[in-house]
């Protein structure tokens, strides 16, 4: 499901009413579909971080990013390179699982290091967090059993700590 046209934008905004509407309407007016979206306050409750995944060519995206930055309440925008960022997503799915194949679903969930949240007579609900590609694989395998309902959160992402900083940091400490 990872698409070459996928772009991940991390947008730091003021944590105020209407900001999400402003941000999303800039995509809507250009007919760009937002593939996924995750919003929550940051370490500073005055600010929220919006992680947006959009399918769009680079040139029009550049224009949207510039327009986004014109919004008064947008503080910072970065496009995250998947190679240089850490991404996580959470999914929960209710899967058809009766007495005959329950064990297989449990086994699959364990292999992916997911969790079993609830078990019913004919179905069970499982959760998995991890990088989005891992979730894609898990979802694909669950399809074989029949997904009743599923919800994914959309990805959240931060840039990777750059290697120099990572290797430099311990040096400062007595070791």
């Amino acid at each position: 499901m990872s698409n070459p046209q996928h772009h991940i934008l991390s947008v730091l905004v003021e944590n105020r009413a209407g900001v999400l509407a402003r941000v999303s309407s800039l995509f809507a007016r250009r007919g760009f579909n937002i593939y996924s979206l995750a919003v929550a306050p940051t370490e500073d409750p005055d600010f929220s971080r919006i992680t947006i995944v959009v399918d769009v060519e680079s040139a029009p995206l550049e224009q949207v990013v510039k327009q986004l930055f014109k919004l008064i309440e947008v503080v910072r925008i970065s496009e995250l390179d998947p190679q240089r960022s850490v991404e996580r997503e959470l999914m929960i799915a209710t899967v058809k699982a009766g007495a005959d194949n329950r064990g297989q679903v449990v086994e699959l969930t364990n292999i992916f290091e997911g969790k079993i949240i609830a078990v019913g007579g004919e179905s069970m609900t499982v959760s998995l967090d991890g990088n989005p590609e891992k979730l894609d694989d898990f979802e694909e395998l669950l399809r074989g059993y029949g997904i009743v309902e599923m919800q994914r959160t959309g990805r959240v992402a931060l840039p990777k700590i750059d290697r120099e900083a990572r290797t430099r940091a311990p040096k400062g400490k007595a070791s």
Binding site: A17, G18, A21, R22, S25, R29, K70, I72
Partner: peptide, 14 residues
């Protein structure tokens, strides 16, 4: 009003 004028103002505020 803020919804209607969002894309035609530099900024708006309720």
């Amino acid at each position: 009003t803020v919804g209607i004028t969002r894309s035609i103002t530099k900024h708006n505020e309720l």
